Simulated scan of single mutants.
Amino acid sequence: MNLPTLVLASQSPRRAELLRRLGLPFEMVPAHLDEGRLSHLPPAAMARALAVEKARAVQRPGRWVLAADTVVALGQEALGKPRDTAENRAFLRRLSGRTHTVHTGFALLRPDGHLHNEVVEAQVTFRTIGEWELDWYLQSGEGLDKAGGYGAQGLGMVFIESIQGDFYTVMGLPVSRVWQRLLEYGYFASLA
């Protein structure tokens, strides 16, 4: 495939893995933002705003830019990346036996400067988690760099009872929706 190289405004290995699986050429250009300054927004609005800001921060003339941000919310309270193991434990205790919402916002900036953005949501239900399981998971350190303090694609998969919606939204990039928008906005024009 002879496709334009996407600028991925992220340092997420999970988002990079998903683009690799799709065979889409990309380069990672992390957008270094103070994400905390948008923490006053409701979770879906925060995910959207962060994705838009990331896309604009790494904008390159004539290039396709893809940015995304994931916010895990219990009700209207966002659970970001835990600061430490104690906060990671607190997050997982709160999610145990409950359903929460994962909001992944993405922004697609076309070479002509048009910016599309949207938020995709999934409902995730955790089974009740035992204390020894928390200890086991926290020893891995996996949840420290992930919204909500767990990785659905990693060891955190053992806590998930069900997901309503797109699994890849939970993983950090709503692949089907992103693909649809790339198709709609002409990214694949050279293949038609």
Rank of each mutant, 00 (worst) to 15 (best):
L3W: 14
P4Y: 04
P4S: 11
P4I: 09
T5K: 15
L6N: 12
V7R: 12
L8D: 08
S10K: 09
Q11N: 12
S12I: 04
P13K: 05
R15V: 02
R15L: 01
A16N: 06
L18F: 10
L19R: 00
L19W: 03
L19T: 03
R20A: 12
R20H: 11
R21Q: 13
L24W: 15
F26R: 13
E27Y: 07
E27I: 13
V29W: 05
A31T: 02
L33N: 00
D34H: 03
D34Y: 01
S39D: 08
H40S: 02
P42N: 11
P43A: 01
M46V: 10
M46T: 13
A47I: 04
R48G: 04
A49D: 03
A49Y: 05
A51W: 01
V52Y: 01
E53R: 09
E53I: 00
K54A: 02
K54R: 09
A55H: 06
A57T: 00
A57I: 00
A57D: 00
V58Y: 06
Q59A: 15
R60E: 01
R60V: 09
P61T: 11
G62P: 06
G62S: 04
G62I: 04
V65P: 07
L66Q: 03
L66P: 03
A67N: 02
T70D: 00
T70V: 00
V71S: 06
V72N: 04
V72Q: 03
A73R: 08
L74W: 08
G75N: 11
Q76H: 13
A78F: 00
G80W: 02
K81A: 02
D84P: 05
D84E: 03
D84R: 08
T85Y: 06
E87L: 02
E87G: 02
N88T: 04
A90E: 11
R94G: 06
L95A: 10
L95R: 13
L95F: 13
S96L: 14
S96Y: 08
G97C: 06
R98I: 02
V102I: 06
H103V: 09
F106I: 09
F106H: 14
L108K: 01
L108D: 01
L109Q: 12
P111K: 01
P111G: 05
G113Y: 03
L115R: 01
H116T: 10
V119H: 07
V124E: 10
T125R: 15
R127P: 00
L134V: 02
D135I: 09
W136F: 15
W136G: 07
Y137F: 09
Q139K: 14
L144E: 10
L144D: 11
A147V: 10
G148N: 09
G148L: 12
G149E: 02
Y150H: 00
G151N: 12
A152H: 07
G154I: 07
L155G: 10
G156Y: 12
M157S: 15
M157V: 15
V158F: 14
S162D: 09
S162I: 04
I163K: 06
Q164A: 14
G165Q: 12
F167S: 08
T169L: 05
M171A: 15
M171N: 06
G172H: 07
L173E: 13
L173K: 11
L173W: 11
P174Y: 05
P174T: 02
V175E: 09
V178L: 00
V178S: 01
R181A: 11
L182F: 04
L183F: 15
L183Q: 15
Y185A: 14
G186H: 11
Y187K: 12
Y187P: 11
F188Q: 08
F188P: 09
A192Q: 14
A192Y: 12
A192R: 11
